[in-house]
Design a protein around this nucleic acid. Structure first.
Lengths: 153, 153
DNA sequence: CGGATGTCAGTCGGACTGATATAA
DNA sequence: CTTATATCAGTCTGACTGACATCC
């Protein structure tokens, strides 16, 4: 049960540190220009490739009409293209433009650059823990995928 | 210079994993009920204790009128109290109520609980990397504090 | 016609800018 | 008077709900 206590303790500390670190990390990519929701849509399209509106509905935390409007904005901004699905007349196919891909890439580059500056200032003793942190985060994501669908909502 | 390449590579991978993991992590606390900005204000008051509006202005990413209105909402919701500073007639002192503190606590508990579920599903090989990840995150925060003020904006 | 996909209309919260009141 | 602190007024972006059009 010492192990139980330790596991809970670790979750507490990890959560606390993640919250604090995130407040810094999320700003590394710089100001968004486009809103959070729009950014999230662009990001999701980047990860998934061409998708329909209803595919995005599952991940984006907004409702259909808001999503529709958001996509219209993104199209107007030249970040996304809409085309009709020849297989299904009801569906639109959404896809990032080159500018949309560039936006994602630029933000990620800024994050990397900011993170690099921080890493350079790390004490030598911490350098080794970076790669284990990377695999830890990946493992936590795997663990999350395993629980998806079994959780309510 | 092999070390240079590795450092950049690590920053890239860490940034990518953090972005992906965050999309899960930020949802662990559940829906906000109150908006993002309001939540951020509550969180900041929790971390700093009693503050004035202009203290919050530095950290919150909104302007004075929006901050003022947001605080009014929080007061109406019973999460924050305003009182005048007897030392300075211009200033309001903002402070979390018990309900406000409870909100922060509840959200953190949900994060911890969600994280614990994920940790329980980790392969044994990753269990050891949690505590090193905690110290890494803390070290990265320290590194960030060192660079604050030297960066533009 | 029934279910899925997407849009239209009206409303509302919450941000912004610019002007303004009050205290130091 | 000038600066700091906070609010008021008007506008705008982007979310929501509910009704509706369109295609399978």
């Amino acid at each position: 049960m010492n192990r139980e206590l330790t596991a809970n303790d670790q979750a507490e500390r990890l959560a606390a540190e993640l919250v604090r670190f995130n407040s810094v990390f999320i700003r590394l990519a710089g100001p968004a220009e486009i809103g959070f929701s729009n950014l999230s849509i662009v990001h999701t399209l980047h990860e998934r490739g061409p998708s329909r509106l209803s595919d995005l509905l599952d991940t984006e935390r907004i409702k259909q009409p808001a999503l529709s409007a958001a996509v219209n904005r993104l199209v107007a901004d030249g970040l996304v293209t809409r085309s009709r699905d020849p297989q299904d007349g009801r569906a639109s196919i959404l896809q990032l433009t080159a500018a949309g891909e560039q936006l994602v890439r630029t933000r990620q580059e800024r994050r990397v650059s900011g993170l690099q500056h921080l890493i350079e200032r790390l004490p030598q003793s911490e350098m080794g823990s970076i790669s284990s942190a990377i695999t830890l985060l990946a493992a936590l994501m795997d663990a999350h995928r395993m629980t998806e669908g079994t959780d309510s909502e």
